[in-house]
């Protein structure tokens, strides 16, 4: 049985803009991934619990309400505290470019801003995902 990439798509915080998250979830599935969509209003603890229980290879975070600098590093930090160091964390949404550096330093491996072709995201994930 071929291994499948398992990805959590999550919306941290109270932001309700999930068009992008849902669209990407669908596209990831079409690319053969197994996508766990967690829905809205996720705390970092909930996202990490999902990643842990689902043995997720990737966690994709989406934020359009300007809370990325708070939530994204928090998720990475919690994953690390559980020893889940090899989970690939990526983010997207409305994120000023000046924040990219900070986020990448805190362990978010890539940030995909508005207008990123979805296939770029897919291929980034495929080439950076861990082996199991």
């Amino acid at each position: 049985m071929a291994k499948k990439i398992k990805i959590i798509v999550a919306k941290p915080g109270l932001d309700g803009h999930d068009r992008g998250a849902k669209l990407l979830a669908r596209i990831f599935a079409e690319e053969g991934m197994e996508v766990v969509y967690t829905g809205l209003r996720q705390t970092p603890e909930m996202i990490v619990a999902a990643a842990e229980q689902e043995d997720a290879d990737v966690v994709g975070l989406s934020s359009l309400s300007g809370v990325h600098n708070y939530f994204f590093p928090k998720v990475v930090e919690l994953l690390k505290s559980k020893g889940l160091n090899d989970v690939l964390v990526v983010g997207g949404g409305i994120i000023p470019i000046e924040d990219y550096d900070f986020l990448q330093k805190s362990g978010v491996k890539a940030i995909f801003g508005p207008g990123t072709p979805t296939m770029d995201i897919v291929s980034f994930i495929k080439s950076n995902v861990r082996a199991r």
Binding site: A2, R26, Y37, R41, T43, E45, M46
Partner: peptide, 20 residues
């Protein structure tokens, strides 16, 4: 999906109260 082999797993949404 029989075509792509991928899947959308959405059941956690409704159980998120228990996820932690």
């Amino acid at each position: 999906s029989p075509f792509t082999g991928g899947a959308l797993l959405g059941d956690r949404i409704r159980m998120s109260e228990h996820s932690t």
